[in-house]
Amino acid sequence: MTADPFREGRLPEAFFAPGNSSFTDFLAAHAEHLLPGRNLPAGAVMPELPHSTTIVAATFDGGVVMGGDRRATMGNYIAHREMEKVYPADDYSAVGISGTVGPAIEMVRLFQVELEHYEKIEGTLMSLEGKANRLATMLRGNLPLAMQGLAVVPLYAGYDLDRNVGRIFSYDVSGARYEEHGYHSTGSGSLFAKGSLKKRWRPGLTADETVGVVLESLQDAADDDSATGGSDVGRRIYPVLVVVTAQGYRRLSQDETEAAFQAVVARNAEGGSAR
């Protein structure tokens, strides 16, 4: 007879540890090899790896829009031209990734499981602040990799069900969390995207207008940054655009994105501004 009734069972003790609803903590206790951000050997020289670039988010009354271009670069090569960089984190938030693709995708996957795991075990949704903090903790776990050149810089945006507003959180590689007001952009094209947003975004835009502003800022970034992909009309590859509101996460369909793109083109052909 053992003191712990589960010691002799097939599943290890970590499966039965009470009072923990974090999947990441469970992995750390039971399957550490599956956690992203494990240390590389000291002095390892990183080969050229795919990087993903520009992510943009902007709020409007009742929600937030996030967009990301589709290009992954590897030095001066284009590694992938239809990459997805914006993902649903859960029903009420979106996460966009810039930085090294490998660890970034792994982090998003873990983050998605983390939120759903909490939801199932606790029977409630995590607060938006809580989710933003969990992402910061994960990023901190990636710091050893970041110091060896595999940096990940996510952008997180969601609808806050307690305050009924859309909110944006940005991060740095050390896991610091900053709440952004209005709009924000990360990645190599972010300078140009932010400049564009600064002139075109204003409080009180509708959801559709905000989608247009976000799309146009991505076009502006693609104009001046070689690592940001523009809209590829021939192949019908357009930025990924998502809207998060009280109704939840919604990704714009191909047709909707194409229509938004045509509207931006038409506006610019007239010589008018996005306003």
Binding site: L11, A14, F15, F16, P18, F23, F26, L27, H30, A31, L34, R109, L110, V113, E116, H117, K120, I121
Partner: peptide, 17 residues
């Protein structure tokens, strides 16, 4: 309840890996 939590962990771990 203990078995339920273990089941959720089992399923999420399997789906993740």
């Amino acid at each position: 309840e203990n078995l339920r939590v273990a089941g959720v962990r089992y399923a999420d771990l399997r789906g993740y890996s």
